[in-house]
Design a protein around this nucleic acid. Structure first.
Lengths: 201, 201, 201, 201
DNA sequence: GATGAATGAGTATTCATTCAT
DNA sequence: GATGAATGAATACTCATTCAT
């Protein structure tokens, strides 16, 4: 059934499972999360999960894929409002933080759970929702460079800078129980990246 | 015996366990790492590990503490060669990357294993070797600001920027099997952070 | 599921586990009894035991509770045939021996396993199926005294005398591989208790 | 060394181990008692115990043998003061209770630990310190019968009656934290056994 | 399709025993 | 002889997965 067309009721059931999985994975991490708890939270039988997902690992993978896809769709439509490539890039940055700070565990999941171990990753060589996300960011950067809004630097390096920094910031912010202002930190970092650290003459 | 003064032979045995643990944790992650495998790799009996560490979790914690402490000591003495605060900061940045790229799994461990789950973290509220590391970085930043070498910005934000970015870069570099130049990426990022992204008029 | 109403099949499965547990506990004692062996004997998976009992200790406790309850029910209905309190008391004595000599290990379990250690007992301060059994015996004694069939002596002392003696006798009889006549011993003891040891003038 | 003649210092060391073992076995029971704890309590190294005893089981066995031997010696000399066989028997009864109530755990050990399991017993077919104790009691009974002080009944049955009852009483008394008068219970039981339960005309 | 009872493989940890010192 | 660090066998319990209903 895993790949068949689903009825409405089935779509709802699958969504319930995914939502429950997000919550439970986020709270306990992959290994401490129990299928039984996810099933209970989703109000389905334990076995039902296996009608929609191959196994626990597959559930984690799929959950991510869907989060990232949804995030990218949201970002895409939000960015349509912006004119210049630079505006789009700045907007991406702001919305990235905003979107993930709504569900900070997703940032943690991205930084942590999907990187369980080299072993894990090697079992899913083609699995790279993160790649799609970074790829999207790289496109925006390239456009901004082409536009002349920012100076030409290595695209991948900048995407790592933006994504890596903000992922770390969001995770810290979440783990610290929001004891600092995410927004101010974000603005400070944007300022540094845009203008540099050196004193302005 | 856990906390007593150790004989030379015991020190060697303990070190063998720690080294084996680093390798196995790094390759498999905390949950997939088996005590039996660590013991085998260290050439000791399974039970011996429990003479030196309270349990598997304690082993992870201690392993980290020791890595971070060693790293900080190394950095400290390397930085003694530098004159200005700015030189020290730049040197920290370079050596940080160099040190962790020698053992890229340590970067992964820092980013991943120690963040297992909110549950895990809450069991060790005061445990923060990462704090010490970031604290050291913040001191360097403050000195550089006081010196006038960089403009006054929020210290914590900058420390997040430097550490978060480079931790991500190292992890990506490691997971990608070193398919890009760590050094060039590092230099590009340093350039951006120092001079900013905007086109130079 | 532990406390839910059970289906017929589940009742059978639970009973199979209880029976297997009685045999294995009886043969090896609590500590030497292995869950795997009980499961094998009951023809269920190891894990299945944990669907019906919290843990090994709980299994021991529950097994006893059920044996004692069943024994008391049997005794109760057997005693309904007797008219006087004295007849009931004598009947209890005879049936007690008969019932436990059918499963002599139950006598051993009562004397031994449930008294593992003061530590064990203190973990179950309110757990006293033995109390119920002795309490029942004390009631019978009180009635016989009220009836005037036996002289008024301390009820508890007599209950200890009857129960303690016969439990010891049954255990010895069982451990000695029935090398003496349980029935004759029982009758001799009954005679002594009823008529006293002193020579009859 | 186990069976060699021992120096004074060794005799002391062995005694320290035995005493520590009694305490620890009594408090925790055989299975929960740890060799390491016994060694610590006896102020010797773990390995030292194995110089004096073959293994943990052997330690339990030897400990009992010595307790029983000492008890029997004490009883023997106490009984020398008595004239008639009947006086000796009564005296045995009283002193048995007194001696064991000083170390109620010995009663428990006798009732419980030495009866671990049929398996355990079958490993020590010839091991019967209890036999010696019961044998001594039977001799006293026989003498009292020969003397005409008590009527002729089956000796073994009476020894079971006396020993079984009092062992149970002492154990209950100990486990109940001495909430009833051991002495009164003892006297009531003696009275019943001597005079019988039936009303005196 | 949905369920959840049953399964049994898998593992951290303990502790009696050994043996190099 | 005494020690106690080292050993590794042994086991209760968990939980992802299956499959009869």
């Amino acid at each position: 059934m895993c790949d068949t067309v689903l009825s409405d009721k089935q779509i709802q059931k699958r969504a319930a499972i995914v939502n429950a999985a997000i919550e439970v994975f986020a709270q306990y991490g992959f290994h401490e999360a129990k299928i039984a708890q996810i099933a209970a939270q989703a109000n389905v039988g334990d076995g039902t999960i296996y009608l929609y997902f191959k196994n626990k690992e597959d559930l984690l993978i799929k959950v991510f894929e869907e989060i990232i896809t949804k995030r990218l769709d949201q970002l895409q439509s939000l960015l349509d409002n912006e004119q210049t490539a630079m505006d789009k890039l700045v907007s991406f940055f702001n919305h990235h933080v905003a979107l993930f700070s709504d569900q900070p565990f997703v940032a943690r999941l991205m930084a942590v759970e999907l990187r369980q171990s080299p072993e894990f990753l090697e079992r899913y060589p083609t699995y790279q929702p993160l790649r799609r996300y970074l790829g999207f960011l790289e496109t925006l950067i390239n456009d901004a460079i082409a536009e002349g809004s920012i100076r030409p630097i290595d695209t991948k390096s900048l995407s790592f800078l933006i994504f890596g920094t903000m992922n770390f910031v969001i995770t810290e912010w979440s783990l610290s129980h929001q004891t600092f202002s995410l927004n101010e930190t974000k603005n400070t970092i944007a300022d540094i990246v845009l203008h540099g650290l050196l004193p302005r003459s």
